[in-house]
């Protein structure tokens, strides 16, 4: 080391860091840990704490005393319905995304090579990263009564079929854009790339020889899929389902723009904290997705899903 380096401040500082590597780690980790710890965790705990308060029914003010009565309110039929509805939606969205995602991921992992591989990669990445609101908006255009889907049914002389579907009680509605089917379609569309990527990652690791061995041993393609491919892809499927499930649980914009007037958890949280001013109930509602995802992540970890992320 040169003499000037030895005496310069930077040189001395870096000597100290070399001698105490712990100091280096502390210096590196302190800014991000403080930022996330104070701003994010601090707010999160402040919110959770408020769920143990309650609102005074007469004055509308928050009573700052520990109580579980706000949580009890979640089990009122009107509130409990919201939770059941949201979980049912999240489960069906997850199932449908998995079914659509699997062939895309499988083709990309096993057959696509070179330029096609890049095309598939971009083909998933572009929709994943393009604007969430624009994607929702495009479905408002598609599902509108005067939109392209109605036109398609009309051109194919199948309007009767669409109307018959729309008259089904829960699934249908006045038009697709104000029905549960519409909400479901938009959710599947928006979260699909989040399902494809982890499935593809897990399928990339399945050796082709294993599939060939299964075939050589007399399994037909269906049996190979059920007994070899699916178990090996399961961690990826579970990893993808974490995203689709969690994102559907917390979303309040899609059901607000495309859907019925029946609320989902996200909308309930939004309304209780906004117009209703009932922060404790909003906080208690926010705990529901956190709890569900906690259980979900615990199961996923035991299935080894995190290795596929």
């Amino acid at each position: 080391m040169t003499e000037t380096d030895r005496v310069s401040l930077a040189g001395r500082l870096s000597d100290q860091l070399w001698r105490w590597p712990t100091l280096l780690v502390v210096l590196l980790i302190a800014p991000p840990a403080l930022w996330l710890g104070i701003i994010y965790l601090g707010s999160l705990f402040a919110l959770l704490a408020q769920s143990f308060f309650s609102i005074d029914e007469f004055s509308g003010l928050i009573r700052y005393e520990f109580t579980l009565s706000t949580y009890a309110e979640l089990f009122r039929p009107s509130n409990f319905d919201i939770i059941v509805r949201t979980v049912a939606m999240a489960a069906s969205v997850t199932l449908a995304s998995a079914i659509i995602a699997f062939p895309v991921a499988y083709y990309a992992a096993r057959y696509a090579r070179g330029r096609w591989k890049a095309l598939f990669y971009l083909g998933v990445m572009l929709p994943l990263w393009s604007s969430y609101l624009v994607k929702v908006y495009s479905w408002k255009l598609i599902l509108a009564k005067e939109g392209i889907l109605s036109w398609l049914f009309q051109t194919l002389h199948l309007t009767g079929l669409l109307e018959a579907y729309l008259s089904i009680p829960v699934l249908g509605g006045n038009s697709l854009s104000v029905s549960w089917t519409g909400t479901f379609l938009v959710f599947v569309y928006v979260w699909l790339p989040f399902m494809i990527l982890p499935i593809q990652a897990s399928l990339e690791r399945v050796p082709v020889s294993m599939l060939e061995a299964s075939g050589d041993l007399g399994a037909n393609p269906g049996q190979t899929f059920r007994h070899v491919l699916l178990p090996l892809a399961l961690p990826g499927l579970i990893a993808g389902s974490i995203f689709t499930f969690s994102l559907t649980l917390g979303d309040y914009i899609i059901p607000q723009i495309v859907g019925t007037s029946a609320r989902m958890i996200g909308q309930a949280v939004y309304q209780f904290q906004g117009t209703a001013g009932n922060i404790p109930l909003a906080a208690a509602f926010a705990v529901v997705p956190i709890l569900i995802m906690g259980v979900y992540l615990y199961i996923a970890k035991r299935q080894g899903a995190f290795d596929a992320l």
Binding site: G37, L44, G250, Y252
Partner: peptide, 21 residues
């Protein structure tokens, strides 16, 4: 985990936590 949490939890939870804070 702390770094991943803000996008692992639904955005509405991050949003409402920050707002009430």
């Amino acid at each position: 985990l702390l770094v991943i949490l803000p996008i692992a939890l639904p955005g509405i939870i991050t949003g409402i936590s920050l707002r009430s804070a």
